[in-house]
Design a protein around this nucleic acid. Structure first.
Ligand code: FES
Ligand code: FES
Lengths: 141, 141
DNA sequence: CCATACTTGACTATTTTAGTCAGGTTTATA
DNA sequence: TATAAACCTGACTAAAATAGTCAAGTATGG
């Protein structure tokens, strides 16, 4: 099981953005340089974040992105949902009664993976962008 | 983030095996048929489980595999370690001081992913094969 | 009017996954 | 002692997912 770069970058970029927020829009170019993430890739990611109303864009010179909500209200879950970084532990279709491998009933481990998925999602539901910015500020001192 | 089939199959097969244990060795062919997993793929997986002393093999006719420890002592962690199903949330090398993207310090989110990794691993450390077999027996009633 | 920066969609190389395939070796039992 | 069941091993490969790149825009502040 591993975390993909898309999800990692999305959070990384938003933490960067959140730190400079309240002052000016932050341009993707700056984030790209500071965090070492490809600009083109960031654009893909922010397009999704904008559609999901995590950020707002400001066009033109001195433009960039700003948060669309308070950092406290943006949870990791919201970010991951926005960029389609899903936690997927089961093989079968969740709403179907069929198991994986095409059997008529759920497999021996289905329940276990379901528990695991919830366990992981709990973590994402708790953490907010604000928490991350704070954590980071403390470590810097 | 998603769980791979290798890890899922390993656990599925061992739960199957654990249920029939104490009587006779269980052949991979039977597991393959019951669980709908390719026999050749199972062999790869059990080769690793054997090398990691999770199971013992019994060769020849009427042979198969038996658990090498008590079901209670086999945790999910052990199984996943054996088949190289690793939880990997950070991009950087853990023992290095360098961050991902080649920076000299750890990135803004490194600590977060580290926490996440621990959170997931905690789940795997708790659950034993015995738990899984019991869960399953209960559900069947 | 033009440089900066957002916006979009298509394309592609690389890596990982999930197997298959081919050839063994061991051993109970008829 | 032949044979078939079952373990054992390594190499190979198709398909999917990932991690981007590339190209061609549009909007707007100064
Ligand atoms: S994972 Fe849901 S049935 Fe196997
Ligand atoms: S994940 Fe470790 S430094 Fe970025």
């Amino acid at each position: 099981m591993k975390l993909t770069s898309k999800g990692r970058y999305a959070v990384m970029a938003l933490v960067d953005l959140a730190r400079f927020n309240n002052i000016n829009p932050v341009s993707l170019r700056d984030i790209s340089l500071r965090q070492g993430i490809s600009l083109d890739y960031l654009e893909q990611i922010f397009s999704k974040l904008r559609k999901n109303e995590i950020v707002q864009s400001v066009r033109g010179i001195q433009g960039g992105y700003i948060l669309n909500k308070k950092a406290k209200e943006i949870k990791l879950t919201n970010i991951f949902d926005a960029v389609d970084e899903k936690v997927k532990t089961v093989q079968c279709k969740k709403d179907s009664k069929k198991g994986c491998n095409g059997k008529a009933t759920k497999c021996l481990t289905h329940n276990l993976w379901d528990e695991l998925e919830n366990h992981i999602n709990d973590f994402f539901k708790e953490k907010s962008l604000e928490d991350l910015v704070k954590d980071n500020a403390e470590r810097r001192v």
